[in-house]
Amino acid sequence: MPFTIATWNINSVRLREGLVAKLLTDEAPDILCLQECKAPVDKMPLQAFAALGYTHCVARGQKGYNGVAILSKLPIEDAGDRDFATLGHARHVAARLENGVTIHNFYVPAGGDIPDREQNPKFGQKLDFLTDMQHWFAAERPHKAILVGDLNIAPREDDVWSHKQLLKIVSHTPIEVEQLGRTQEAGRFVDITRQDIPQGLLYSWWSYRAADWDAADKGRRLDHVWATPDIAGAAHSSRVLRDARGWEQPSDHAPVFATFDL
């Protein structure tokens, strides 16, 4: 049975409950993975989403920061979470579908503004988080797994508006790109979005700082859908819902979709 999965950094699920409802109503993915929910689980508007048909949910939250949730029309069971780099942050949660596919929802640390762990501890936390992911996936050797989320790294030259100008900007520095590549290799993950859309500029995030984000179009592809090789061939129809960045009081991220025939 095919299912469509979407991933979206919502930047406060309480503030943007209406936008989530709009996406669930208009686009109707079978599964929606949210990041940066910025609320404890008991404060997330999960009942409102259940009323729209998303009656299954696993989530991890904390007050004011981070937070990840998996909303689903399909039955799912809680498959746990991991505190990567022992930061004490709600940045990972996993769910398992009845067909045995495990979905990992990640919110990798943004890493601050200075790409130097000595000057900026947040950058060190980001690198440590990725290293811990590498070690875990290397040990786990996941199969029938989908990894989605805001990974806060745009790895390819055509994942940013200017490769040359962003080489020293956090999210596109060589060390981050290398670390993300190692993480992908550790789990043998396939980048589904780029499997489907192999060429051309592609973004999922546009800064709030731009007076006209659409006209400036200085974006980055920070949000990803990956899958293990045993199910990567079943994926298709990847897309970024760019229009969502232009909704009223939007997140600075747009949802990313993929469909799996499993």
Rank of each mutant, 00 (worst) to 15 (best):
R117M: 11
F257H: 03
I231C: 02
P109C: 11
G100Q: 09
Q165K: 14
D42V: 07
V20E: 12
R117F: 09
G112P: 14
E185Q: 15
H92E: 12
Y54A: 09
Y54Q: 11
S72R: 11
L74G: 05
H56Y: 11
N9F: 00
F137R: 11
D132A: 12
I175H: 01
L130M: 14
A211F: 08
D150I: 02
N105R: 15
K22F: 02
K218I: 08
S207E: 01
D159S: 14
Q199S: 14
Q179F: 13
D158Q: 11
Q179W: 13
V41Q: 04
A227D: 03
A94L: 06
D191M: 14
P75I: 02
H135V: 08
N66H: 03
V58D: 02
V68L: 01
D78I: 02
P250M: 13
T193C: 15
V148Y: 09
W205Y: 08
S162E: 07
L32C: 01
K164Y: 07
F49M: 12
R60C: 00
I31C: 01
A69D: 02
G112D: 15
T173I: 04
R188T: 15
A94T: 07
V160G: 09
D113S: 14
L87E: 08
K122M: 06
D230E: 10
S72A: 13
A234N: 08
Y203L: 06
H89D: 11
Q179D: 09
E176T: 11
D214K: 15
Y107P: 03
I146N: 04
S207V: 04
G149H: 06
W206M: 04
H163D: 15
W205S: 04
A59R: 07
D196S: 12
S237T: 14
I175G: 01
T173D: 02
A216E: 10
V160I: 08
A39T: 01
V13W: 07
L127R: 02
P142Q: 08
L52N: 11
V13F: 07
V170Q: 05
D116T: 05
T102A: 08
E140D: 13
L202H: 08
L46C: 09
V108D: 04
P155I: 06
S207L: 04
M1Q: 00
I146M: 03
P250C: 14
A235E: 06
K144V: 02
P255Y: 13
A186C: 14
N99C: 14
A216I: 03
D230V: 09
A154N: 03
G53R: 11
S72E: 11
D150P: 03
G80K: 09
G111E: 08
Q165E: 13
K168M: 07
W206A: 02
R245S: 07
M133G: 07
A215N: 06
V58R: 01
Q125C: 08
Q249A: 13
A210K: 00
A154C: 02
